[in-house]
């Protein structure tokens, strides 16, 4: 791997529902300092990361993946001609499948990625979680995927309230009665489409694990965290690394079984009997990944090293009891900067 790298990163939406882009960039800066050129990839002209010029060297707007892979490829080719990208870090759930699809073409262009395979990506979907748990011997709460509102009453016969109503990619609401289930169904359908997932609510403490799999069944890194402060969107605003060996064991078991390639986040709940349930598997690093970096496991850097075929030893330790506390900051932006990204699509 060459000394000076150019890495394109998406997920610059460092908002109250933050994407992992900026934390990933911080991790890469910690690793390489100024020996890395960061190219921001944005879908919206007000993504805060666009204007964090000390972290992002140059940014480009790109079309939404839903607009077709052709348009996205054309735009990436244009950016690559200028920037000579070595590696792309896609960070949005909704764009991952597209990037997985175009990864061979990117590779031919000289751009590396480190993503799960299509099978790995598909089988951990929220709407296939029950199947996933059964296949790998992991506890998951009962989940039923529904494709139309008429299926709701029959599906609800399998649950006790409260029930979690979830969107395919994002959003989850806790419903305490039928009316609320209908209301959240419509709300999520309008935003993210179908299917909708109904999941048994599990009372208990929520834990998260950020991990990196090498694609051969080895866990390169795994750091568990407990959310300490949660926003009204359910996002962690503060969290602390914890020492719970069962969470690490579960992560190793999962990665060994499905040979996960790339970053991932496990969301788990420990019920009052101490049983750990996997409630979600996110196929990318989470927005709190920098906590793992600060605790001794720079997984984003390791992902790039793995993509370049370098031997990466698995991280064995991390600092326990280390916290992150987010804050908001009014970054002042000039009109000319905003104009540049809005009209030229580059900044």
């Amino acid at each position: 791997m060459k000394q000076q790298l150019t890495v394109a990163v998406s997920g610059l939406n460092n908002t109250d529902n933050p994407g992992p882009g900026i934390p990933v960039i911080r991790a890469l800066r910690d690793w390489k300092g100024n020996d890395i050129r960061i190219i921001g990839i944005s879908y919206d002209n007000l993504e805060p990361g666009l204007f964090m010029r000390d972290l992002v060297d140059k940014s480009y707007s790109v079309p939404f993946p839903s607009g077709g892979t052709e348009n996205l490829m054309l735009r990436l080719q244009y950016i690559h001609e200028i920037e000579k990208i070595d590696f792309i870090f896609p960070n949005f759930d909704a764009e991952l499948f597209t990037f997985m699809k175009i990864a061979p073409e990117l590779e031919k262009m000289g751009i590396k990625t480190f993503l799960p395979t299509a099978d790995q990506f598909e089988e951990r979907h929220k709407y296939r979680l029950s199947e996933f748990g059964e296949k790998y011997g992991l506890s998951v709460p009962l989940s039923i995927t529904i494709g139309s509102i008429s299926e709701v009453p029959a599906a609800l016969n399998n649950f006790e309230y409260p029930v979690v109503v979830k969107g395919k990619f994002y959003d989850a609401y806790i419903a305490y009665n039928l009316e609320q289930v209908y209301s959240y169904f419509h709300k999520i359908q309008a935003k993210w489409g179908l299917p909708i997932i109904l999941q048994q609510f599990v009372y208990g403490n929520e834990y998260n694990v950020v991990a990196l799999g090498d694609g051969k069944g080895n866990t390169i890194g795994a750091v568990p965290m407990r959310k300490q402060y949660i926003t009204d969107k359910g996002k962690a605003w503060a969290g602390i690394t914890i020492d719970e060996p069962r969470l690490i064991e579960m992560t190793h078991k999962l990665i060994a079984a499905n040979k996960w390639r790339g970053g991932m986040e496990l969301e788990l709940i420990k019920d009052k009997n101490g049983t750990l349930y996997i409630v979600e598997i996110n196929p990318r690093f989470p927005a709190w990944v920098y906590l793992a970096v600060a605790s001794g496991q720079n997984m984003p850097a390791a992902a790039i090293q793995l993509a370049f075929g370098e031997k990466v030893a698995a991280f064995e330790n991390y600092d326990i009891g280390k916290l992150f506390v987010r804050y908001s900051w009014d970054n002042i932006v000039t009109l000319s900067e905003f104009q540049q990204i809005s009209t030229l699509g580059e900044l």
């Binding site: 965290m225 407990r226 300490q228 969290g239 690394t241 914890i242 020492d243 326990i320 009891g321």
Partner: peptide
């Protein structure tokens, strides 16, 4: 007092 297994 810090319980490292739960974060409490």
């Amino acid at each position: 007092v810090f319980d490292p297994s739960t974060g409490d």
